[in-house]
Design a protein around this nucleic acid. Structure first.
Lengths: 152, 152
DNA sequence: CGAAGATACTTAACATGTTAAGTGAATGCG
DNA sequence: CGCATTCACTTAACATGTTAAGTATCTTCG
């Protein structure tokens, strides 16, 4: 069997960890986890979303998102209100306080991203992301959850 | 701020999830998590290792590894004995039962990996892994933990 | 209309990620 | 030697990942 430290999952895991290690300290200083930050960023760009759509955007599973939204709401960083037309749906939006928090984190976050880009190379970064997208695409519809979709 | 769904961390996260989604069902059938599988694979190739070295190889943090080893030992999939020369060190090895479990999982795991390789392309896969390695390298010594290292 | 099924979440339960603190065993050094 | 420091782990505490089950609401269709 292939040396597992050279397997694709391990390569992806290590690369992601190398990247996230750069961001975590800054986020931590602001009392945010990586996932909470993802949610705030997603909300900042969208005004109002349903929970399910937010889960898709922030790439979080429903149960994780449920918990995090509960906590973010308790910290007054987001707001929720049930949709009028469908009482099942909960509409989520970022609060003013949330916007301010984002504004305080964004500069260092941007700086870190810029430094990563500088070190790795902007061109290579684009190329890498293209390959990652292709990998994702090439596996779409393979694993669980895709029951007889059209696929064209 | 950049559309966060196109950020490098998200690209890496989605790509990894697309890959792991392929493996999880098979591992689950054998009662293994992704991390437990990593540990068994690492042990199978090494005969005996210290916990710290195993953590490095399987890319797990100490506390996670501690818990998992406790569980794997309870399931008799691994064995532990303290080193004679240094009572602090615990030497870990895979058990016979562990070897058999690996043998029962390996075929489907190999098949899945082969299918991923086929879909994405063997050449592109190599290229992708090279880029991931370069990314990791280019960020080595940036984040936390590297206090005034020599840097060559 | 009204019961069966589908939807949109939420809770529960267990495993891991992450940081900090704890424990016991070596080491360094005065 | 003896004590402070370091080391190799382990525990603790809290957040998230993951799957299954639960709850309320909505939709469908007889």
């Amino acid at each position: 069997m292939r040396d597992f430290s050279r397997s694709l999952p391990m390569s992806l895991l290590r690369a992601r960890e190398a990247v996230m290690r750069q961001f975590r300290p800054s986020l931590r200083e602001h009392g945010l986890t990586e996932q909470q930050w993802r949610i705030l960023r997603a909300l900042a760009a969208i005004d109002t979303v349903e929970v399910t759509e937010l889960a898709r955007t922030a790439f979080l599973l429903g149960p994780s998102l449920s918990r995090i939204l509960r906590d973010l709401e308790a910290r007054n960083l987001i707001e929720r209100k049930t949709a009028k037309a469908d009482q099942r749906r909960s509409m989520v939006s970022i609060s003013e306080k949330g916007v301010k928090l984002m504004a305080s984190v964004a500069p260092s976050s941007e700086a870190i991203y810029a430094e990563i880009t500088r070190r790795f190379g902007a061109r290579k970064l684009v190329e890498l992301q293209e390959m990652l997208g292709e990998l994702e695409q090439s596996l779409a519809g393979l694993g669980a959850g895709e029951e007889a979709s059209a696929e064209e």
